[in-house]
Design a protein around this nucleic acid. Sequence first.
RNA 1: GCGGUAGUGGCGAAGUGGUUAACGCACCGGAUUGUGGCUCCGGCACGCGUGGGUUCGAUUCCCACCUACCGCCCCA
Length: 428
Amino acid sequence: MKYQKPKGTADIMPDQSSKWQYVEETARKLFEKYCYQEVRTPIFEKFEVFSRTSGETSDIVTKEMYDFYDKGDRHITLRPEGTAGVVRAFVENKLYGPEIQKPVKTYYMGPMFRYERPQSGRLREFHQIGVEAFGVDNPALDVEVMAMAINLLKQFGLTSLKLAVNTLGDDESRQAYRQALVDYLTPFENELSDDSKERLKKNPLRILDSKDSNDQKIVEKAPSILDYLTPQAHARFETIKELLSVLDIDYVVDSNMVRGLDYYNHTIFEIMSADDAFGGKWTTICAGGRYNKLVKELGGPETPGIGFGLGVERLLLVIENQSLPIAKKLDVYVVGIGEQTSTESLKLVQTLRNQGFVAERDYLDRKPKGQFKTASKLAAQYTLTIGESELVEKTANLKNMQTGTEKKVTLADVYQDFALLINSITEE
RNA sequence: GCGGUAGUGGCGAAGUGGUUAACGCACCGGAUUGUGGCUCCGGCACGCGUGGGUUCGAUUCCCACCUACCGCCCCA
């Protein structure tokens, strides 16, 4: 093979694209019910947009960014996630202005890039559908966002979902907790996995979701963030849980859940699926949270925000086996017998299309048998056959492919109103 | 970045250090001057991921690389 797609990328071919369209369309419709509007931001941004917001020491920034210097020596990076770019656009376009109604509810969908080893449900170019809402700190919005995410997944027919929620509290809570955690873990430092030893210095919270079994044992008895919340942060989290219950949304509190990005505070959540597609393991397909300092970080006024990102490839893995309501339909297949019918066939399909039908024809001058076979395979409702004699008589042979009944019709009638002919053959 | 498995026609899949690389599906043509199923016949790999090497000779042995898949890190 001379040319191959770059490592970790995928071609979405015609047999797949309808699924993508269905997913995107469904998301758009749902988001608009909640009054979210689409924003489209650049695929690449200045490196600092992500390094500032994701955390200088986060893995995403230190090893997973697709960055490069352009011809103007600008440090550019392909976006690894959607939030930072949307926040940048929010600030740059001054949507924080008083004349703009809050919350500003936005959604986006598109490719993201991370330089990592591809594996199941993880590509270097992958796609996310996400939402971001700015300007409101009300916990009701947190819950509405989670409810919307769940609704979306349910619309795709996903069952066996798990909503895990946690809070990172405010700055004060988080700092107090971080200290407590480090104090607890330091005596165990030598027992921790090599990865976690590193994390102890860089990002101790990450040790909480280590997959190393020994780490997990140590973490079991570690202090919980929930015990270090300030009264306000605590009250906020209680409200969140209460509102989830009011909406009858099942959830579990996972106080060990953390985020890969540094900008979150207060509410964070993940929606996981244990579908067969993931070998029965709980796998996160949607994750999000609140980020009240991000807008300020990117130069805007202090403005609260909350959002989530949904991994489209992972979602597709789950709905792969389901039959989606995607109907390919073909109304008429025009069978032309002999080269000299090609012109009339062209006029026929064009006329039918103009009349609103989905029409196709043969372009290879194949034998009738082959053409009918194709019509059958394409699930054509009707065929319209013309040969030399029909050409002379200015007629065509209309056939209902389901019943097999045939009828001679005039071309004039077809050009006039094909729907009428369909009715007549159906009635007989 | 680390570890493991794999790479033969459009797809699935045998195979061997040595003349013409099985078979199945799909596709195309014919039997049936113009009709969807079945059956029968025929066609369909400038060649076995790429590049080197060993050898009289390699798809088959060795090395490197590429890619895919699985796991780790991390994450959607």
